[in-house]
Simulated scan of single mutants.
Amino acid sequence: MPLKNDLLLRTIAGEKTERTPVWLMRQAGRILPEYRAVRNSLSGFKELVETPELAAEVTIQPVDILGVDAAIIFSDILVIPEAMGLQYEMVEKRGPHFPETIKSAADVKKLKVADASDVQYTIDAIKVTKKELDGRVPLIGFAGAPWTIFAYMVEGGGSKTFSKARAMLYTDPELSHQLLQMITTSTINYLKGQVEAGTDLVQIFDSWAGILSPTQYEKFSLPYIKKICDAITEVPKTVFAKDAYFARAWFGKINCNTVGLDWCMDIAESKALIGDNKTLQGNLDPCVLYGSEASIKEATQSMLNQFGPARHIANLGHGVYPDTDPGKVKFFVDMVKELSVRA
């Protein structure tokens, strides 16, 4: 089915467009009262992720309410470790928690390489969403980068340092590579399933990229992201690596189409490092949206000026924060649309 709004895909392809496309990381979520109404009717976050019709409903909400140029499937990066055999819980106000963690070769031996069918609920949610979107906007699929997934599986949850996960890279590099490869193969299978179900592009989130040194990142994260990008040939790929300033030049050389920037990454410097053959995505500070409409407009204009009219997808430099006023979020979306119109 041809898309009615293919602005995002044309921008990624480097085509000249009538304006800059805009969507937001974490747009399907807690900022919207409509999302909270669905979420509060359920036992918890995981039930929402695992119920295709409801996951589709909250995926589409921001398209209807905020007017964004893409939908991103409502799911979680931690569905992959669970599909591999490591269960997780989502603890209210604390985040993800793994009752069991990976400490040894024996623990890795208990895991399996996951197939897309092991995350069938997300595959089904994509099919439902595609049908209900009816070609209005592209649908983005996603997965966590292998290092970020590894970090959660070894650490057991969020952490300021991820010292257990980082320590394993030094104390048992061979086992680390074995686990990272299993995660990578599982992720490729999962993303291929997403594409087959109907996603128009995919994004790889390396949320904990910035806690590794450049040397360790080049050894334990970059090669696995590269493998995923090389394997997914059917749709465009976006790589977003939070705080990994040193990785930008590398991302300019790998087989991805778009590089996401966080709000601390200088735009001109990023463009110089990444080169002209990639589209850039980002990178407004999410906290700008706490400010006045005048200050949001000014910051949006500044961002658009710095990126320029070509090969830019407007977004935040990370996910929208849950206590942000939805009216301010919509104002930002509207401002991108208004201020980026090309003559």
Rank of each mutant, 00 (worst) to 15 (best):
V137T: 08
Q194K: 11
T279L: 04
I183E: 00
M25G: 03
P214I: 13
V49K: 09
P99L: 09
G141Y: 14
K46A: 09
R30K: 13
Y152G: 01
E234M: 09
I225C: 05
D6S: 15
I73Y: 01
W23S: 04
I60W: 00
L289M: 07
L280S: 04
P96D: 11
F332I: 06
I267K: 04
C256S: 10
D266Y: 13
K109E: 15
V38S: 01
V336I: 04
P52R: 02
V336M: 05
A165F: 10
L169S: 04
L86I: 13
K253I: 05
H312S: 00
T279V: 12
M1F: 09
T238I: 15
L339R: 01
L9H: 05
K164R: 14
R342L: 01
L111W: 01
Y88D: 08
R19F: 08
E196T: 15
L191Y: 08
P173F: 06
I188N: 06
E92F: 11
R30P: 04
M153G: 09
L212V: 03
G210M: 00
F331E: 03
Q194P: 12
I140K: 05
M90N: 12
V202K: 07
I80C: 11
Q178L: 10
I12C: 01
G282I: 03
W23Q: 03
K253Q: 14
N255D: 13
P2H: 05
T148K: 05
I65D: 04
K328H: 13
S163T: 05
I183G: 06
V320Q: 01
L7E: 04
T171D: 12
L201C: 11
C256D: 07
D262N: 12
N5V: 06
F240V: 08
Y224W: 08
N305E: 15
G144M: 08
K227N: 04
Y224Q: 10
K93T: 13
A294N: 10
D325Q: 02
I72F: 04
F150T: 00
L32T: 06
F240M: 09
T300S: 02
P322R: 06
K16E: 14
G317P: 00
Q306F: 01
K131M: 09
N277S: 15
L273K: 15
K93P: 05
A114L: 08
A105D: 02
P52D: 14
I126E: 06
D200Y: 04
G260T: 05
L261Y: 05
L304S: 07
S163D: 15
V333Y: 02
L133C: 11
Y190F: 15
E18K: 14
Y88A: 09
K127Y: 07
L191R: 06
C229G: 01
S75C: 10
